[in-house]
Design a protein around this nucleic acid. Sequence first.
DNA 1: TTGACAGGTGAACTATCGTTCACCTATAAT
DNA 2: ATTATAGGTGAACGATAGTTCACCTGTCAA
Lengths: 189, 189
Amino acid sequence: MKIEYKDKIVAFYQKHGRLPGYKEIMNLLGFKSKNAVFKLINRLVEEEVLNKDAMGRITLNNIFNEIPLLGVVEAGIPETADEIKDNTLNLEDFLVENKDSSYLLEVKGDSMIEAHIEEGDMVLVDRKGTAKAGDIVIAEVDGGWTMKYLRYDKGGQAYLEPANKKYSNIYPQYQMRIAAIVRAVIRKY
Amino acid sequence: MKIEYKDKIVAFYQKHGRLPGYKEIMNLLGFKSKNAVFKLINRLVEEEVLNKDAMGRITLNNIFNEIPLLGVVEAGIPETADEIKDNTLNLEDFLVENKDSSYLLEVKGDSMIEAHIEEGDMVLVDRKGTAKAGDIVIAEVDGGWTMKYLRYDKGGQAYLEPANKKYSNIYPQYQMRIAAIVRAVIRKY
DNA sequence: TTGACAGGTGAACTATCGTTCACCTATAAT
DNA sequence: ATTATAGGTGAACGATAGTTCACCTGTCAA
């Protein structure tokens, strides 16, 4: 199997956002027969590059939205592209549990710096779900918005704790509303 | 335009990895006429939910792999789903520059803790590109792998600096090879 | 009340898709 | 040398896609 074939089809997918049709594959790969495409597709399905559903329609296997996961830093990075595809990760699927209720926010300030969340980081938050003690939450408290640890004191009273000794705990005076739970931190250099 | 229609088509896409065909949309939405589908698609193209390319084939606009970006934490989270879609971000596109040469590694140890990279974080690294002084890099130095700041001393000699006072700078004794540059840090709770 | 219009039905047509059958190479294995 | 096999050509088929035309129907604004 010429790897070139697979690459060209994947490249088409990247460029157009859909897989090429039979005629397009013929042009793409220089085939003169539709049956050559048919057989190629079946080979690719065998190799689990493509999927064919009940209607015979083909889809690209997830592999190509995924990033190889190579283990820990100390193990280093292999030179060959061989053992790589054993374990891959789709960032979106990994990070986002509820697509409908997830949002990104940019972090200002250093109030969570000891939790290793720094200014300029992005936090992925989910509005669904119930916050537990110890979760980092986005809360509206007494009219302002903030990101802090959610804690409960001995009396069962909820309060917010910053991860920075410079700031003090926040006990809501009037009302506090947990708007979202921080599910992930993303920092880009 | 019933939002229900759009949602069902998107749901189909999420489930099957491809857009439904005319017949499938008819079943999905209860239409009895293929032309109803045709007009619906054109309306969705108008709304920039779908794209139609030269061959008349449709693709889903990127919007649905994207996560709303709501500004800074202090601004809070809007209740209504209205003003949300103004600014969205595709995590994959945002973080990954070179798909072919990007990998994920898990972080062990605390040698970069002052750079706010903690044990258990994932780092997204890129094997392509040239590391500049100050970049966090994955390096093979004297037979072992490590993640550190890349620095140059006054003599132009490269060395590795940890972000933790407990550890000292690493000057390569025999050889040092920069295998990849850290492009992003991802932490999931 | 009337008329425009959004959004649906129904039928027709061509192009492409998905598949099957028969057949034709080169190359590698026996 | 001969055989098997991988991978291509070519033609045919029904099913679906994509488009166009004519027409129907409820709603809302003038």
